[in-house]
Design a protein around this nucleic acid. Structure first.
Lengths: 136, 136
DNA sequence: TCAATAGTTCAACGATTGTTGAACCAAGGG
DNA sequence: CCCTTGGTTCAACAATCGTTGAACTATTGA
């Protein structure tokens, strides 16, 4: 329908991010786990499959869409896969201190994705061309 | 049925308060309004009827129960009515900074209960026996 | 004692949520 | 070119949510 070059995904602008929406979207263990993982791995390129042990492929897709539509994460299309990142700056600007206090409160929850995965991630970053610097 | 002196309402202990529950319960405009009002009126005796312009009696009762069961508010039975208060100390202990950042982020929302009501409240506090000091 | 007051419980409802499998689509790599 | 890989869309589902009016309970005050 659209004549847009590469159908990009919807992201609310910073101003459009709603507190009640952010809170209700974050009021879910799975999503909290995803956000916690993203927070501890900022600067790395995280794609959807990284969260497959939190649910089925469909399910992860569902939760990531919720996070994106709420303005909590950004999803950039990179070839055949999506890179997910926290919209930390935007959230900090809109709701100062909120994300940090939530992340701090969330420590010790199940988003402690098995170390195997994290090690593998580092390994991939190392041997892949990508540097661990900020995405984009 | 119970042999308890005065069937008190259920309140989770501080340790039992769950982050995801708090966030999802606060992810609702009506509840956010209630909590905002309670925060700006700490020390005053607030009863359920104070929130009647946010919904029907049944509805307010429903939301207040949600807040209480999540550990966000405390409800004490005082004669024929209930006094509602924020469990600020408990929340601060469990999730430091969280409540404050939410309240700060929530400013400017509809929980700006018409000034008439606030004036009336002060009036009642003044002419009633109760002092405006901390409840309890 | 009787009635008013403050609030809860109940049953019902339509709407939204989280989850799933099957089908689908869009790049890239052999 | 075909097929694999990474991810979305769809239809369906059971479960929970927010809302309502009617009935109910409990306490207080005349």
């Amino acid at each position: 329908m659209g004549i847009l070059p590469a159908m990009s995904l919807f992201h609310p602008s910073t101003e459009q991010i709603e507190l009640a929406t952010v809170l209700s979207v974050l009021g879910d263990q799975t999503r909290l786990s995803i956000v916690g993982y993203l927070a501890r791995n900022e600067g790395f390129e995280i794609n959807c499959s990284r969260f497959l042990d939190l649910g089925s492929k469909t399910n992860v897709s569902y939760h990531l869409a919720k996070l994106r539509e709420a303005g909590i994460t950004r999803t950039e299309v990179r070839g055949t896969n999506r890179l997910i990142s926290l919209r930390r700056a935007d959230l900090d600007q809109r709701f100062p201190g909120l994300l940090d206090s939530i992340l701090a409160s969330a420590t010790g929850i199940a988003f402690d994705m098995h170390e195997a995965a994290r090690a593998e991630l580092r390994q991939l970053e190392r041997e892949g061309a990508a540097s661990p610097g900020p995405v984009g």
